[in-house]
């Protein structure tokens, strides 16, 4: 499982409305609209680089996780991380056993 990292929280401006988050990413100057659990993943990942399983454990400490469609939490989080990596909000951490997210 790849290990992901995220820019420090100061790199992101966010505004919440209607259960969604408007997020401005300062390094890229790009604006995104995020649905849960993407904002929560960014927050949890800001505690340090992590793979999906580690992140799932972190999120389970801070949140009561509803697994919705019964899928494995780590698998869902892996999918979300891939999505966030594709738009440049997270990156695979170099040198921590990671691979380039596709």
């Amino acid at each position: 499982m790849p290990v992901y990292r995220v820019d420090p929280p100061a790199c992101r401006l966010s505004v919440e409305a209607e259960g969604m988050t408007l997020l401005y990413h300062r390094p890229s100057g790009i604006t995104h609209v995020l649905l849960p659990p993407a904002p929560e993943i960014l927050t949890a990942l800001a505690d340090g680089p992590a793979d999906p399983a580690t992140l799932a454990a972190r999120l389970a400490v801070s949140h009561a996780i509803g697994d919705g469609d019964g899928e494995d939490a780590a698998a869902v989080i892996a999918a979300r991380l891939g999505e966030l990596a594709a738009v440049g909000l997270v990156a695979v951490a170099p040198g921590i056993g990671g691979r380039v997210a596709g």
Binding site: P37, V61, S62, H63, G66, G68, D69, E71, A79
Partner: peptide
């Protein structure tokens, strides 16, 4: 602890 729905992959 806030509730968080993970949704589908």
């Amino acid at each position: 602890r806030r509730r968080l729905m993970l949704g589908a992959a």
